[in-house]
């Protein structure tokens, strides 16, 4: 294993559209994918709102960037950790989130879910297991 590979965590704690952080975070993730690092995304607090289904932005004249999350698998970004407690607090369940899948090249290209719902304690473990934490 190349020792230069670092674990990057992109932390998303803000809702989409009200501010640009979610969109510009996604732009970093897409560019970052070209660097072949070990990438994970964390969605907690209002960040979980970024992943909900049925976003329609026609009425506000802003680009709907939520479909881009479904393309992350093509960039080998396949670990999207979503915090259960953050969903609960906001009256959401996993069913309210988009289906985001990737094809696992190590498992005969089987389709697997990219979203991994984790507890707050597990999220803390994910955060503590990183080399670089980028917050948005």
């Amino acid at each position: 294993m190349d020792e230069k590979i670092k674990k990057f965590l992109y932390v998303n704690r803000k809702a989409p559209y009200g501010t640009i952080y979610a969109l510009e975070a996604l732009e970093v993730v897409l560019i970052g994918a070209a660097f072949d690092q070990d990438v994970s995304l964390a969605f907690l607090d209002d960040g979980v709102f970024q992943l909900v289904k049925n976003q329609k932005t026609d009425g506000i004249g802003v680009k709907n960037f939520s479909p881009t999350f479904r393309a992350l698998g093509d960039y080998d970004v396949t670990k999207l950790f979503v915090e259960q407690e953050s969903l609960d607090e906001r009256g959401l369940t996993a069913d309210d989130l988009q289906d985001i899948i990737y094809e696992d090249e190590d498992d005969d290209w089987a389709e697997k879910p990219s979203i991994r719902i984790v507890s707050r304690a597990e999220m803390a473990d994910v955060m503590a297991d990183q080399d670089v934490v980028l917050s948005f």
């Binding site: 732009e27 970093v28 560019i31 660097f35 690092q37 670089v132 980028l134 917050s135």
Partner: peptide, 18 residues
Amino acid sequence: LGQLIEMGIQTDRLMTFG
């Protein structure tokens, strides 16, 4: 943006001020 990722790779600590 690649310069941001490269900075994360090449430095020992990454600080964010926002």
